[in-house]
Design a protein around this nucleic acid. Sequence first.
RNA 1: GCGGGUGUAGCAUAGUGGUAAUGCUUCGGCCUUCCAAGCCGAUGAUGUGGGUUCGAUUCCCAUCACCCGCUCCA
Length: 530
Amino acid sequence: MPPHMSKTIDMEVLASLCKRRGFIFQSSELYGGINGFWDYGPLGCELKRNVKDAWWKTMVRAREDVVGLEASIIMHPAIWKASGHADGFADPMVDCKECRKRFRADQLCEEQGLALIKNGSAFALPADAACPACGSKNLTEPRSFNLMFKTFVGPVEDESNLAWLRPETAQAIFAQFNNILATARQKVPFGVAQMGKSFRNEINPRNYTFRSREFEQMELEYFIRPDEAVKLICGRVATLADNPDLAGEPQADWGWEVWHRYWVEQRLAWYRAIGLPAADLNQHWQTGDELAHYARACVDIEYAFPFGVQELEGIAARSDFDLSQHQKHSGKQLDVFDEALKQAVDRLDADAKDHCTQRIVAAWTGRGKSGEEARAFAVKLYEGKYVPHVIEPSAGTDRLALALLCNAYDEETITDEKGKTDQRTVMRFHPAIAPIKLGVFPLVKNKPPLYAKAREIFAKLQRRWPCFWDESGAIGRRYRRMDEAGTPWCVTVDFQTLDDGTMTLRDRDSMKQVRLGISELIEKMDAEIG
RNA sequence: GCGGGUGUAGCAUAGUGGUAAUGCUUCGGCCUUCCAAGCCGAUGAUGUGGGUUCGAUUCCCAUCACCCGCUCCA
């Protein structure tokens, strides 16, 4: 059963807070805005940076088997031909004005025995073309729905200078695979991570920042041995049926299925670690026709947004499709030499190899591939070479930031000792991603020694974390302002601080206060921010 | 892309064919020994463009943006 929001929030109320406090602004608002683009304000950019830092720390720096890449956004257009984006994005579409269904113009004409009229790069429908659904001839002209943003490299705007803004960051990793392999001192299995902007000319941006035309991705391409190589090296291939320990160290005998599941578990654990409750996360295992033709498996990690359960990240087992595509289109080899594999196959005699080849041919033809392809793969395998397979956890940074904002938003009614009730709006961010970690206040601002002491403490703490100084208004007001910014703690410097150095630490979620000294404070914050 | 709705200050609302109002916020000052206290003051708006009119924030048209539903989401 899909999860639902444990609380309901109105997206307009959240958007209003995001604007009021400086998390998210509409792009180009001064000029009336531009559809599908958003800006992050002072608090929002800190939030997003914290998300990216947490991802990079977990996925790259905390691991020995993953390295980073930062590729250009504009790349050789051939990359998008090889990946399939250039063709898949360029179909001319027509809409039926009567029943409002949309069709690919070329398919519609072909079904009706007609020819699509082409004038240069523009298309037109023959007069007899009719809507396949309702039969109406009241159709729009064919329009190209290329979802990649076009641009021109150099000052001359002609086809030879055409380039695209990347619609995903992943392809650069495949295109730079050989360079990374040669320089990173990694061996399969290993991964390459990249974060950065991508661009898709979405037909219909919707749901606040959820579907934007410019967005940021955090992608990992984790390269693994094909199962056939694992089998030769280890004598067996572990599957999920073997109950592998997915939380422990990865094992050499893991097949693609285990590796895929391993990354699903890793990613879910990370989402929980930055504060998304398990109850609001969902795994959607794609089946049959949902799967891309080259994908063996794909899991969407979904979050229960107020506007529905929607995808945060897709974790796909993409076989060797991507590297093979680039191998074909570039004419360059993108296989690896695996010493362990070579040693394993060298122990086999000719009979054993024949037997192995037969098994591979049988398995491959069973999946609809040709026997010839299978035999070519086997020959390479006996040289210790293969094109690595890949597991791709691909997350949307902005979607995650939005999920974190939705999850953090809370309103509560509080009652004071006199029985007076009051509404409190509080962003309950996990300390690791909170834009500001600590508010620092002098209890009053018109007592110079107290004020000076507070400034001194602020200066000390600000060197370690993003802190916010606030001396304006009553103390309660300052706490509430920090609540809306999602600041987990505030310290207030009072007269006792001048005597013994202790101050009050006020907790955002419980509003409880404790007295502690600066070293205890630093220790506590280090522990909780992580 | 289609249909419906909405655009007045940072936010929430009011109002008008003739000087655009209020609350909160923000900023400054006074005060203030721990949860949006009080007092004084300040900044700040009719999405954009065109039309009708002596005069348009108000009426009309277009456009842009946002929201809802459909569609789309390689």
